[in-house]
Amino acid sequence: MSGTYPATWRRPPQIITDRRLRIGLQIGVLVYLVLAVGSLEVNWQRVSEGLERGQRFIMGFLQPDFTSRWRDISQGLVESLTMTLTSTVVGVLISVPIGIGAARNLVPRPVYLVCRSIVAVSRSLQEVIVAIFLVAMFGFGPFAGFLTLTFATIGFIAKLLADDIEEIDEAQAEAIRSTGATWLQLLNYAIQPQVMPRLIGLSLYRLDINFRESAVIGIVGAGGIGATLNTSIDRYEYDSAGAILLIIIAIVMVAEYGSSYLRKFLQ
């Protein structure tokens, strides 16, 4: 009886059903990989020499040296932390009006377009590149870093805030509007209660990102722990570098747990 049924079965292709397209794509991917790997030009001798240094770095990570460069590390940390806090506060303060302006359901079209383009510019420029320019303009040090992070915060918070406002429950806004409330009263009674918890959450999240970024922009001269890290790596002091990286990881972990705790507490 079972002889009447087919004895083979192959899983039919799920995503790309056209056979030629599928084979074409597979060949394309293969060709790309060959070309990409082919253009690598690895100096294996240099790499094998580096293995010893890599080992030293891993040792440095496992036995970090916090003490011998502690003055530099602590100064870098203080710069990073202060820069993180000030840039987040200023960034959030600026991004609230811009975020409101970038919400389609609240403002006239010209204001919307202006605010959205500010957001787009801030988001498309990478922090490190912004930092390079600001360092060139304002000189080395944490002030340029502060400006960079503030600039990046504006794009981040304003966009998410605006998207959030656009998604609010229209019925609540409608109800407040129908009482004859002014635009500011509308903001205060209908919008603020709906988006405030999220704004606080976003600000805490951005605080965390800003700290991580502060470690990066130091490499191009914008102060903070990144500058200290850069120096220690340049000097091949892997034990100090390991110490700095561990501190960064620890602070990020604390910030993550802290902010999730704080968010729960505030809601």
Partner: peptide, 17 residues
């Protein structure tokens, strides 16, 4: 690899039937 025995596949078809 989805390479089942022929008898398994026949039985599966039979059951689906």
């Amino acid at each position: 690899l989805r390479r089942f025995d022929a008898s398994d596949i026949q039985r599966a078809y039979q059951l689906l039937d």
